[in-house]
Design a protein around this nucleic acid. Structure first.
Lengths: 240, 240
DNA sequence: CGTTCTCTTGAGATCCCTCAACACCTGTGG
DNA sequence: CCACAGGTGTTGAGGGATCTCAAGAGAACG
């Protein structure tokens, strides 16, 4: 039985602080209709597809959503994983530029885009909050580009693990005991690698004594400092 | 003598339409002080460095600015090229998350961040324009991630050329006669490749009859359709 | 206790990188 | 006008990291 990570308003971390606590109230404050529904998603069920008109913004309540783009022949790049507490689609363009798929059973709250638009109009400071979120997302994305374009497989994986660990620490969990809710295949599509390379580098880090694999989805960071060093590229490849 | 691509207010395309025409007026409308200066940059001169406090937002008037991040050992990833008319740093975080360097002699207009903040407060719709810009940038960045993580060298280069051509078409220039203002080294750091690989793939596309190299910085797209097909990955690698 | 899905491991192929030489261009100065 | 130097781009040869293909090992589930 795994730690379910249900999103709650009292969560220490929140990408969407302005939705904390009284989310429904504040949204119905902006719109007379309170057409905010929750939606349950099975594994591999899609929340939206690239090219579809964007009708909603989503708040992940539980589970994990993968945001990705495809090449014509099926090659996939996952741009981000949306965890409970994360918002999806705040960068409102009218059509979706990528697809969103549940990577495990998930629950999301669906907020119509016009509700967001009204909030921007009526709630002072709301627009700026959105801007700040977008800015953070952009900063994050650029770090990902550096990783995708310039890091080795081992460095990419180390970077990924460090990021998950930091997220853990941020929400009050143990930094060094990380639960990986996604499959190897999804990690591969996130890092721009193949599943085999991901797997090989897990064992590589394991043999180097940097991590320990309790199970496929449960990783213990034995030497966080060294993992960070590898992620930063400070560590020559052959010493890993 | 190359086509200088000076940015003018009457430009057909503009990432920053709200700065068209009477930019200074509207900004001094927001702030009593009109402390907007222009700055001249030599090649390789930096506009800002990663980690510095962000004091200004910049509008590129002429030249070309490269926005990049570094790994500890000097590996570089250029996240974007800012052309005349492009804004830099609209995603205001308080410190710069990347560095900006002039890739050729350039001129920029410097706008203090507090002027932007005041504009957000006072100009209705300004914040939303910023949001739209950020959303577009995010969409663009995610397409880049797909390219960095999942495309072959040839596909990356084709994608790059198609994007430059589309930009040309958008500002009223000939789509198929593209001027490449950056060096091979910078294209390499943009695409996550080495200069040699970039060079080899230029000649590869040339031999395939898709492009013609008039000079190092002047490329003629002989077969735009095929270039697009290669960029999309429709074309098996061995047929290039 | 199979069946299925996922992960790991191995062997060989491939793409890209590294290192090195050479070609080209431009400006400078004899 | 030519020689030279420095910056930039191209090309080649070899090596290495990652991918592909294939088999086997574990885990999850009925």
């Amino acid at each position: 039985m795994h730690h379910s990570q249900e999103f709650s308003s009292s969560s220490m971390r929140s990408v969407a602080p302005w939705l904390d606590g009284d989310a429904n109230d504040r949204l119905s404050l902006g719109t007379t209709v309170s057409c905010i529904v929750e939606r349950e998603l099975d594994v591999h069920e899609h929340l939206f597809l690239e090219g579809e008109r964007q009708t909603h913004v989503y708040l992940v309540l539980s589970g994990l959503i993968g945001i990705y783009k495809l090449l014509a022949d099926g090659r996939r790049q996952i741009s981000t994983f949306a965890y409970p507490g994360d918002m999806i689609g705040l960068d409102c363009t009218d059509t979706h530029v990528d697809s969103g798929e549940a990577l495990s059973g998930s629950r999301v709250r669906c907020i119509p885009v016009n509700a967001i638009e009204k909030l921007i109009m009526n709630e002072p400071g709301f627009g700026q909050t959105l801007l700040r979120i977008a800015a953070n997302e952009l900063a994050d994305t650029r770090e990902r580009m550096l990783s995708l374009g310039r890091q080795s497989a081992t460095e990419k994986l180390a970077t990924f693990l460090v990021k998950v660990a930091r997220r853990n620490a941020g929400i009050g969990l143990d930094r060094d005991t990380v639960h990986i809710p996604m499959k190897r295949c999804e990690i591969a599509d996130f890092l721009g690698l193949t599943i085999e390379t991901v797997s090989r580098n897990f064992t590589r880090l394991k043999l180097a004594g940097v991590i320990r694999l309790k199970s496929n989805s449960q990783v213990e960071l034995v030497d966080f400092e060294r993992l960070e060093a590898i992620a930063k590229g400070d560590m020559p490849a052959h010493l890993n």
